[in-house]
Simulated scan of single mutants.
Amino acid sequence: MKISLLATLLLATQSQAPLTPQIMDVEVVRSFPHETDAFTQGFLFADGVLIESTGREGQSRLRKLSVVTGKPTQEIKLPDDVFGEGTARVGDKLVTLTWRSGQGFVFDLTTLQQVGAFAYEGEGWGLTYDGEKLIMSDGSSRLRFLDPETFAEIGGVDVTISGQALPRLNELEYVNGRVWANVYLTDFIVRIDPVTGKVDQISDLSALFPRERRKDKLGDVLNGIAYEEKTERLFVTGKNWPLMFEVNLTPRTEGQ
């Protein structure tokens, strides 16, 4: 990330003036174990089950997790030559991206057996589904829209914050008409209007799992947003973090 952009995010969260976008702080409801060999890429709920996809060649997995233990109750490995990335649920399927191989996979939600594959241009980072189209990030400031059946690119939107392009959009989650995105290498989650591309909220999660507690202070970054619509529970985690957190996000009050 460009230093000027990171500075923009930091200054926004530290300002005491009325702000647009709105600044949110994190409150931990409870924490749960998370496997420290899980390089988290995709994170979502499907029918009450927490699903995670992980990355790195030879280590990429798609699995269902026990929330209580953090351990997989069902798991498959991706091919050893791909680097797993974001995952989205589409009906009774799970769609998973890979980083630089230009290849996506489709799995049966119940069995996790592969039932399809597709190709795309560029890198694959995050993926979510708004009920009509897949929304994909590729490391740039653009969100790409894909047809959920053919996986053809059907549009997109450029994401900006205060008029400035916001790159490194990573893991995605669709929540109540907005796209939430981790900003890679930061402890921020941004909320994006998918029509205009404007960031209308920044959540500062830097207090959640301080960098001095991370084994790899640069690599073990915040990544993973799972929202359960039925219960309105929000879970977050990070790459190789020992914990995942159920959290609430609260507006920052003046003077904080």
Rank of each mutant, 00 (worst) to 15 (best):
S141G: 05
T150L: 07
E52V: 11
A165R: 10
N170H: 06
D47S: 11
Y129T: 01
V106S: 05
A88H: 12
D187T: 06
T111S: 15
Q103G: 02
D204H: 09
A152T: 13
V221S: 02
T110K: 15
L234W: 07
L146C: 07
K2A: 01
R56C: 01
Q22L: 12
D193F: 11
P251V: 10
S137R: 02
T231Y: 14
T110S: 15
I51L: 12
V247G: 07
F32L: 02
G156C: 06
T20Y: 12
R252N: 13
A181E: 01
S101A: 14
R89F: 12
M136K: 15
Y184T: 03
Q14F: 10
G55F: 01
L44R: 10
F188Q: 09
V90F: 05
E121S: 14
D92W: 11
L65H: 00
S137L: 03
T160W: 03
G55K: 00
A181K: 08
S140Y: 07
L249F: 05
T36G: 08
E27K: 15
F235Q: 01
T196C: 11
A226P: 05
R233W: 04
E52R: 13
N223G: 06
E171G: 11
Q59C: 02
D200P: 02
T186N: 07
P148A: 00
P242G: 10
K77C: 07
Q164E: 07
E232R: 15
G70F: 00
V115G: 07
S206V: 04
D138N: 14
F209L: 09
E52G: 05
L127Q: 12
G224F: 10
F32I: 01
T98I: 14
V179Q: 03
Y120V: 11
I202A: 05
G42R: 06
D92I: 09
P194S: 13
T196G: 13
E121L: 13
G219K: 10
L94C: 11
S162L: 09
L11M: 14
I189M: 01
E149M: 03
P194F: 15
R63G: 01
S31E: 13
